[in-house]
Design a binder for these strands. Structure first.
Lengths: 173, 173
DNA sequence: GATAATTGTTATGGACCATATCAAATATCG
DNA sequence: CGATATTTGATATGGTCCATAACAATTATC
C-alpha cells in the first residue's frame, strides 16, 4: 500500500522551492534558508526516514512489500508459534490495526493463522512456503539494493555506528 | 495535536509483549527475538523518529507546538517575506495541506498572512509579536530539554555525527 | 487580448493510528 | 463448581496526515 500508485512524480520534494527555472536565467526567487532547522534532530530524522522508506518501497516493488509487512514476515519467521497479540505488540502495532494487515498477507498466501489447540482464542502465526520464499527474496533485495546503498553513502563503520545510535535513541530516549 | 489527549497510558510500547507479569513469577511467555529486525535501518529509524517526536511534544506541551508547527515558525522567522507556496514546499508540505496548518497558527495569533502588493495572489507570511515570543521560548525549551537529552545520551561528538549522517541520507539517498 | 500558468483554497479519498466495544474462550476466585 | 474478570481476535469508528483534482482570482506568455 501507499506505494507505486501514481507515486513517482510530485510528492513535493523539500529544499527545492525554486523549481520551474532552467537554472540559467535570472534567479528571481532566492533559495530559502533552512537555518537552525537543519540542526534539528526531529526534522532531519523525519526527512531521513521518509527517504529510506521511499527507497525501501522502490527496492521491494517487485515483491509488493511495505516496511511494515516486511517486519511482520521477519518477526514471524524468527518467532514461530506466536499469536497475533505477541507479534503485533512487539512491533508496536495495535491489535485492531493488525487484523487488516494480516488479512492482506494471508490473502496473498504469505502467512497463515492457525487456531491454537492450547488456547482456542489465539491464532498462531506461521509463514507459508510461499511466504518463506518471498521473504528470502526480500532479504536479498534489501541487502543488495537497500542496505548496500547505505554502505556506499556512509561506509560500513559509519553505517553500524548510525544503527547503534538510532537503537539507543529508540530504546533509551 | 495527536498529543496530550489521553496520551500517556497505552500506545503499545514495542519490545514488551510480556506485560501483565509481576516480573517474579514463572515467565510462561518468553520474550520475542527481534533478530535481523534490529539491524534494519528503516525499522530502527522509524522507532527512533517516533521516540524523538514523542519527547518533542512533551517538551513543548506548555506551548502546544508540534514539530511541524515549530518548523514552520522557524522557517518563517528565518525567511521573512515569503509566501505560502515557498514555505510549504521547502518543508515538503503540499499546499492544500498547508492551509489548515496556517489557519491554526493564525487563529492563535502566532503568524499572519499578508496580501502581497507585487503579486496579489500571494500571501506573504510573517510572525506576529506573539509568534516571535513563543518561538523564542520554544527554542529555549528545545535546546534545554530536548536536544540536551541527546547530548546526555550520545555525547556532543556523536550527536553531531548523527545529525550529519541523517542529513546526508535525507539529501543524497 | 486570448491562452496558459500560478496562488491560495476547497473537497475528497487513502493510509495510518487510537479507542471503545463485542463474542468467544480462558483464567480467577469465592 | 460457578460467577466474575481477563484475554484474544475482530468490528466499528474517529482523528490525523498525506495526496490528487478542481476552482476562482490573479498574473504571465504569446
Amino acid at each position: 500500500m501507499t506505494v507505486s500508485k501514481t507515486a513517482e512524480k510530485s510528492s513535493e520534494k523539500p529544499a527545492d522551492a525554486a523549481k520551474g527555472r532552467k537554472d540559467a536565467g535570472e534567479p528571481q526567487t532566492e533559495a530559502l534558508q533552512l537555518g537552525e532547522l537543519s540542526e534539528q534532530l526531529g526534522y532531519v530524522l523525519k526527512r531521513a526516514q521518509l527517504k529510506v522508506f521511499e527507497n525501501f518501497l522502490r527496492c521491494m516493488a517487485s515483491l509488493q512489500l511495505t516496511p511494515a509487512q516486511f517486519s511482520v514476515l521477519l518477526l514471524v519467521e524468527k518467532n514461530p508459534g506466536r499469536n497475533q497479540t505477541e507479534i503485533a505488540s512487539t512491533l508496536g502495532i495495535l491489535r485492531p490495526n493488525f487484523v487488516a494487515m494480516l488479512d492482506n498477507l494471508e490473502s496473498r498466501d504469505l502467512c497463515a493463522r492457525i487456531r491454537s489447540t492450547n488456547d482456542r482464542r489465539s491464532h498462531i502465526l506461521v509463514l507459508t512456503d510461499k511466504g518463506k520464499a518471498v521473504l528470502a527474496r526480500a532479504k536479498k533485495l534489501v541487502a543488495t539494493k537497500h542496505e548496500a546503498r547505505l554502505n556506499d553513502l556512509l561506509g560500513q563503520a559509519n553505517r553500524e555506528a548510525l544503527i547503534g545510535m538510532l537503537s539507543k535513541i529508540a530504546n533509551e530516549f
